[in-house]
Write a protein that binds this DNA or RNA. Sequence first.
RNA 1: CGGGGUGUAGCGCAAUUGGUAGCGUACAUGGUUUGGGACCAUGGGGUUGCAGGUUCAAGUCCUGUCACUCCGACCA
Length: 478
Amino acid sequence: MDDKNFVKELTKMDDNFTDWYTDVILKSELVDYAPVKGFMVIRPYGYALWENIQKVLDEKFKETGHKNAYFPLLIPESMLNKEKEHVAGFAPEVAWVTHGGDNKLQERLCIRPTSETIICTMYSKWIKSHRDLPLLINQWANVVRWEKTTRPFLRTTEFLWQEGHTLHSTANEAIEETLRMHKIYADFCEEYLAIPVIKGIKSEKERFAGAVSTYTIEALMHDGKALQSGTSHYLGTHFSKAFDIKFQNKVGKEEHAYQTSWGMSTRVIGGIIMTHGDDRGLKLPPNIAPIQVVIVPIAGQKPGVLNKVAELKKELSSKFRVELDDREEYSPGYKFNHWELRGVPVRVEIGPRDIENNNCIIFRRDTLQKETISLDTLQEHIEKLLVDIQQNMFEMAKENTENYTFEARSLEEYINIFETKQGFVKMMWCGDVACEDKIKDLTASTIRCIPFEEEQLDTKCAICGKDSKHMVYTARQY
RNA sequence: CGGGGUGUAGCGCAAUUGGUAGCGUACAUGGUUUGGGACCAUGGGGUUGCAGGUUCAAGUCCUGUCACUCCGACCA
C-alpha cells in the first residue's frame, strides 16, 4: 500500500470512529454542543456520571489527608509569568480578560489554564515553618485552554477537573506523594472505570511545563489510539523558588518547599465511552454508572404490573441506583434501546406472565444476554451480576489492549506497524529526543511513557541503533 | 494558520433543462396497542446561512460574505 492510500484508509477509519463517538455522546444525552465553538454543555446524564467520579475520587483524596479549597478563576499576567517553563508551555493557549465593564484593565488577566501560579502565590503566604507542612490541598474547578481543535470530553476549550497541589519539606516526601496520587488514579481507572492502564513516567519532551517529572496513566481506546487519563507531577522546587515558598526547617534554616500537582478531568468520560462502547451505544461500568438497574414494565396497563414494578423499585433502591421507566407513551422495545444506548448495565423486564410465575427477565448490557430469574433471589442476583459485569468489562478491555500492543525492534518494523494497524508499540529507546521527533514525523506517534515495568526487548534503540536506556510505550494519541 | 467538505422545518435529507419547497423522523391531539425502536387519523412548524447580481421567474446560475465541520501543527 502506498502512502497516499494508507493515509486515506486511516482517515476513513478515523472518520468512522469519530462519527460513532459523536453520535453516541449526543444521542445518549451526555452532552450537547454549546453555542460557543469549542465548548460543550454537559447534560444531566453526563453530569451524573461526573458526579459519581467526583464522589469516589474525593473520598480517596480525603482518606489520604487532602482537603478541598477554591482559588480564583482569573490570574494576573505578571503572576503567570513568574515560572519561565510554565508560561512557555501554557502561553499559546490561554484566554485573556482585558476589560472590566467598559474599562480597559491595567494588567491583563488570564483565565486559568491550570492553577499552579495563583495557588503558589497564596502558599508563599501560608508557609513559615516545617510545622505547616505537608500542605495537602485539592480543588474542583474548571479551566480554559484555547485549543485549536476540540472534541467533546477529549479536548474541549473549557473542562472540569480536580487539581491537587501539595507542599512538602523534603524531596522524598514529595515524590512519595506524587506516586501515591498516581497510584490512586491508576487504581481508580481500573477498579471503577474498568479501564486498564499503563503506568509510567513521561519522557522529558512530553512532561508537564515546569515539572521535574510527570507520572502518567495511559489507556488504549477501541480505535488503537492512546488517551492520557491522569497525571501526577513532581515539581521539585521550580515553583517554590519562582514564588518564594520558603519554610524554616527543624534547625532554623530557610528552605524552599518541595511541591507536587496532580489532576484528572472530565476527559476520562471520553475514555469510558471509547474503551467500552459498542454499536448499540454506551456501556457504563456498574461502579460508576448513574443508573445501575433500569426496570421496564411490560403491558403496564394490565392490572398489577405497575404496582409490582413500583414495589420492586423501592426494594432494589436500597441497594442499587435504580430507574423505573413507566412512561406510557413508549413501547418496551423502544425503552430497551433507549437504555442500552445510555449504557445502563442491567435491565429488569417484568410483565403479567412473570408476575404470575414470580420471576422476571434480566438483561446484561455487557454481553447482551437475557436470563429468567426468580423474584425471591433477584436482589442477590443483581448484586453478583453487577460485580461480574464490572469484572468482565475490565477483562474485555484488557484483552483488547493486549491484542493491540505490538513490539518493534527496528525503525522499519516500527513504521510497518503504524502502516497496517495502530495501538501501543513497545520498543527500546536510547533516550534521545531526536528519535522521539523522528517517530512523530514519520508516524504521528509519540512516546506515551516509560513504564514502571520495563522489559528488555533488545539492547539497542529501535530507531537509531544506539545503546538503549529504556523500554517505552508509544502510540498515536488523543 | 494551511487543505477538504457542508449550509433547505428541532434532527436527517430531497427538489430533473431555473417554473408555486417536499419526504422521513421528532413534536401536538384523539383512539387502538405494549415480551426488541407499535399502528391509524388529524394537525402545527420555512425570509432555503447572509448580501448583492442575472432573469418574466432563483433553493437551483454568477459574485461576495459569514458560519459550521473534518484533516494537519499545539495540547489533559
